[in-house]
Amino acid sequence: MIVCVAVVGHQNNPLYIQSFTEADDALKLHHIVHCSLDVVDERVNNPKKSGPMLNETFLGLLYPTDNYKVYGYLTNTKVKFILVTTDLDVRDADVRNFFRKFHTAYVDAVSNPFHVPGKKITSRIFAERVSTIVKSFGLNSAG
């Protein structure tokens, strides 16, 4: 189950962060997302370490914790997407698929002429789309 998704801007500032959990751990998820930016930075700044990852938007598993897995995605405009999930065996293909859908939703949201680049994404449509994508994440892997 996806517990948190985030869009992070150029200054590593959060543009959109939404947790999908009933528990009281939203703050903890914010911390996890924030910390995973360290890994993104490292991947981006030292492309040697992650040789084959070069020129790929999907950054893979970022940060192992006991209970969560954190995946990252870097768009061409250097906007970062972070996904935190509690499923411990996740197929890479599922995550890639999720990010692709998420990216499309993001592109649609920022293409809104009333959206100012660099500002937080407050579009309600975007939030709805994201929650649909998040819900369909588990189903896809099952099917």
């Binding site: 200054q11 959060p14 703050l27 914010h30």
Partner: peptide, 11 residues
């Protein structure tokens, strides 16, 4: 503050 993580800063 620098990165604008308001929720963390708030805490």
């Amino acid at each position: 503050r620098k990165e604008g993580w308001v929720t963390l800063l708030w805490d």
